[in-house]
Design a protein around this nucleic acid. Structure first.
Length: 489
RNA sequence: AGCGAGGUAGGGUAGUCUGGAGUGCCCGUUGGGCUCAUAACCCAAAGAUCGGUGGUUCAAAUCCACUCCUCGCUACCA
């Protein structure tokens, strides 16, 4: 038996002091689309998401609500799981850093790094702004004061264990050089490269003040800094070191992350893995941020968007589509309901929905044989779409898919099938129905629910990527509801 | 401040590496065509001193220098 290609993609694990907003939804939907695309290609996919549950902020948030940290995070985790279900996220496993199995593996890995001599005891020194409860480095201070509020800062000296990140500077640089695709997208790789070339400081990896965390195995007074704990999720979820999944799926094909956490994933994470003798992931892809109507998302502006509400208002698939259609993954983009509505009305309803509707209407009235020569085949370029998806460019992929949809609409206009009869009509219908069947496959990672509806109206089964070519298929056409309803605004 | 990215029609982009008529795409605007279909679909047109100045060249959005503007990153909150 031929062994299936393996594909492992992860989202960040989301921190639980807050409810999921559009940023979380974007990352997760994008990962979902990529995962579904690779399933379409017949690969064996493992798609991981989860929650990062330790640390001071979760501890405080729990206190505020009079709950234990565990009770508190359980509540938030339930929300995440429910929302991912509503957004049709096809993850294979949901990891929680409070899982005992995760904790055990984290300790095991830290011990291994310690034994390799890469962890030592030292003192963390920094500036602390008491009212803001925030640490700052020398560089960040503004005229010796807190850069946020301008008030005086206090020098803090705290016992801490450090990871010898500096030791891995050369190894990291060599690794980046040998694996040019690792730092993605390209325009972001220089930010990391330059900083690593400037020199690396060792990282403080333990705290003495935080209880809600994984205990540091070598010293009971310390707990592990949450980031270290969090990063390890990517292998603990696979059951490192001996788990079957670890052997099958590691190294990860893509860690999809937001640009704000690029440093941890592109520098600290591979260094930790080097130290533990584990292969680093193949690619870290940092996507951009959304602005909402041209403004940054922030709590003070109160413009955080609830993804579920949007999905309800405009339909889930329109929302998923709009997120991935707006800009190439990696760039920053602006999100507005107005654009979403325009895309829904013009692209999904008018181009795709209407194409199906007009084809199905004609086909239902026709009772001859649906067969002919594939005249629309030349407008379809599946390789180009796949190539865009391999570059993680959903924007280009959707553009290419919609070029084919446009070509099909034009074909209808040119052929004027409502004037045709018999064999001629059968030939046009063959091209239309085959095109729709293929379109349904191609868009299924983006809009899975819509593909199901198309398949139902055509009377065909869901296909794989290799079925995206003109061939012979039997149809049982039955007109159904509109794929997308236009929305007035 | 240091490092990085970018400034192309009303908006968004491709083209820049490997110079060759401002060439393309999406939205928007205007006019027309068609009528199977969700007042949809198709065609066409208008609209840009390619941030600015100077240079190299027969020829510059593209190469060089300078300049203006915008944005991002700068490690221990996640």
């Amino acid at each position: 038996m031929r062994e299936l290609a393996k594909f492992y993609i992860t989202t960040p694990i989301y921190y639980v002091n807050d409810k999921p907003h559009i940023g979380h939804a974007y990352t997760t939907i994008a990962a979902d689309v990529i995962a579904r695309w690779h399933r379409l290609k017949g690969e064996e996919v493992f798609f991981l998401t989860g929650t990062d549950e330790h640390g001071e902020k979760a501890e405080q948030a729990a206190k505020k609500e009079g709950k234990t940290p565990k009770e508190f995070v359980d509540g938030i985790v339930d929300q995440y799981i429910r929302i991912w279900k509503e957004l049709n996220i096809s993850y294979d496993y949901f990891i929680r850093t409070s899982d005992p199995s995760h904790e055990k593996i984290v300790k095991q890995l830290v011990e291994k790094i310690y034994k390799n001599g890469d962890i030592y005891k030292g003192y963390y020194e920094g500036w602390y702004c008491v009212p803001d409860e925030t640490f700052w480095t020398d560089l960040q201070l503004k005229d010796g004061k807190c850069p946020e509020c301008g008030r005086d800062v206090k020098k803090i000296k705290e016992e801490s264990y450090f990871f010898k990140l500096s030791k891995y500077q050369d190894k990291l640089l060599e690794f980046y050089k040998k694996n040019p695709g690792f730092l993605s997208p390209k325009f972001r790789s220089k930010e990391i490269l330059n900083r690593v070339e400037d020199g690396l400081k060792d990282v403080s990896i333990t705290r003495t003040t935080i209880k809600w965390a994984v205990p540091f195995p070598m010293d009971e007074k310390h707990t592990l800094y949450v980031w270290i704990d969090a990063l390890i999720n990517y292998i603990s979820a696979l059951g490192w070191p001996d788990g079957k999944r670890f052997k099958e799926f590691w190294p990860a094909d893509i860690h999809l992350i937001g640009k704000e956490i690029n440093w941890f994933h592109s520098v600290i994470w591979p260094a930790l893995l080097f130290s533990a003798g584990i292969e680093p992931p193949k690619k870290v892809f940092a996507h951009g941020w959304w602005t909402i109507d041209g403004k940054k998302i922030s709590k003070s502006l109160g413009n955080a968007i609830d993804p579920v509400a949007l999905a309800k208002k405009y339909s889930l698939d329109a929302f998923r589509y709009a997120l991935l259609r707006e800009m190439p993954l990696g760039d920053d983009g602006d999100f507005s309901e107005k654009t979403l509505a325009v895309r829904l009305n013009n692209e999904l309803a008018a181009e795709l929905g209407n194409l199906l509707n007009r084809a199905v209407t004609i086909a239902e009235k026709y009772d001859g044989a649906i067969e002919g020569s594939p005249e629309l085949e030349s407008s379809l370029n599946v390789d180009k779409i796949d190539e865009a998806m391999e570059r993680i460019n959903t924007f280009d992929a959707l553009s290419e898919i919609f070029l084919f949809i446009k070509a099909a609409n034009k074909y209808v206009n040119d052929k004027e099938p409502w004037k045709l009869k018999g064999k001629e009509l059968g030939g046009v219908l063959y091209n239309l129905l085959e095109s729709l069947r293929i379109i349904s496959i191609l868009i299924s990672p983006f809009t899975p629910g819509t593909s199901e509806k198309i398949n139902a109206q055509l009377g065909v089964k869901a296909g794989a990527l290799e079925d995206c070519k003109f061939g012979k298929h039997a149809y049982k056409v039955k007109k159904g509801e509109y794929l997308f309803k236009k929305i007035e605004n």
